[in-house]
Amino acid sequence: MTEVTPSLGSRKTGIRPARLQRNRLADLAIHPLTLRLATALILFSAWEYAGRLPVSPAFPGFVETMIAFADMAKDGSLLSALLITLQPLVAGLAISAVVGIGLGVAMGISRFTEWLIAPPFIVMQAAPMAALIPLLVFAYGIGLASKILTVCIMAMPVIVLNSYLAIRQTPASLIEMGRSFLGSRAQIILKIMLPSASPVIFAGLRLGAAAGFIGAILAELLITPTGIGDLITYNQSIAEYPKMYAAIFSVIALSVLFIEGLGKIEAAIFRREGRKA
């Protein structure tokens, strides 16, 4: 909000305090928080209205869905399902982070590695990797391994390419500075290139997490229904739509919180340094 002192306003532009008062109210009305609440209200009301119409027997209203959500939260089925979904997700993301950042950094500091490894990942970044899921099932069966690998193939390309570009974008003058002060190659990589690249690497992790969520849910819907995927498909098959929608709502909420959390960590780390990812 912009603060205007009354004296300045009345002297220079003749705006009277009453006008200012109105401006404050208007400011409050378009404050981000007010508007965020307003849109949530509008969206959920529209959802409720469409549910009551009803647009489709398979479209429960907001209230009905929230009641189902509360029921499932109370009996613990939602939490246990989310925890099962999180297993392949967290494992897959951890593998993707370690391997992906490693490969990306290797590509960033070595021309040969770049030449060898960058092209397949550039293709993967553009390609619909989900098409490979049936193949993973062929090779690794319908267990946890396939699901972890699904998360990996979805999340890895963006993590690799972000890490790689981040290292490549180290300002040339910082590297020259390191050389002119007699830094060894290892020192320049560890003390200059990696810290310089870290915001973009972190942003890549965030994007990878978003892609990993898509993969984890896809794996549960396509390979074998477990966790949230099981709640979705089971409730769909018995036409228990409020529960189905509640399960979907919960996993989207979880992913939003997860990614928001990563963003908060990111901001906390890099704000002090005046760097944005």
Partner: peptide, 23 residues
């Protein structure tokens, strides 16, 4: 609109496909 656009930009949209399918 911005908060919602940001949410859907990184939300696992694969979870919404079953909704589209039943509808």
């Amino acid at each position: 609109l911005l908060p919602w656009v940001n949410i859907f930009l990184s939300a696992p949209l694969s979870a919404l496909v079953p909704v589209i399918m039943v509808l």
